[in-house]
């Protein structure tokens, strides 16, 4: 490969890295499905939320605290936002900036045809928010919660997955 191409690629990567700090990745369902099903050495705690869902907003700090408490464990907390891509810049990003949520991975799922993917995330899920899943590293064991969770509940439910 010509060195100019290498430099172009590297510059793009650097620019990309800089903008990630301000942006929330927008994904489609297939990418979410890969995230939820591809085995790694890490337990996943995946929370579905929206800025318009009051109980969701109330529990976001618990996910952040959980993520911080397990920073050295093989645990990944992922917050999947469902405000819709039309709200990313005017609502979601300002919300994140205001509340200062940092540690969990944050994604916006751009899939307005809800019926096409809700059942694939979990047959236990009606589509009600908030909704949380804990998935083991092999991606074979999972537990779902179609309700708000306290930090204590999150810790209790996570424990068997990290032992």
């Amino acid at each position: 490969m010509k060195s100019i191409h290498t430099w172009l690629l590297l510059s793009l990567l650097v620019i990309g890295q800089a903008s990630i700090a301000q942006r929330m990745p927008v994904i489609k369902y297939p990418a979410l499905e890969r995230l939820l099903t591809r085995p790694t050495d890490t337990v996943l705690v995946v929370n579905f939320w929206a800025t318009w869902c009051a109980p969701c907003v109330a529990e976001l700090p618990y996910f952040e605290q959980l993520s911080a408490a397990h920073a050295t464990d093989k645990v990944k907390v992922i917050l999947v936002n469902l405000d819709g891509i039309g709200q990313l810049v005017k609502k979601v990003q300002p919300f994140i900036a205001r509340t200062g949520i940092k540690s969990p991975e944050m994604l916006l799922l751009d899939e307005p045809d809800y019926n096409s993917w809700i059942g694939k995330v979990s047959p236990d899920w009606s589509g009600a928010l908030p909704f949380t899943l804990i998935i083991d590293p092999s991606r074979k064991q999972r537990k779902t919660f179609e309700k708000g969770l306290t930090l204590a509940e999150l810790e209790t439910e996570l424990r068997p997955f990290i032992q």
């Binding site: 109980p55 019926n115 059942g119 928010l129």
Partner: peptide, 11 residues
């Protein structure tokens, strides 16, 4: 039947 995202009922 059609599922949709909504606010969980406050039980």
């Amino acid at each position: 039947t059609v599922k949709a995202i909504g606010c969980g009922i406050r039980w």
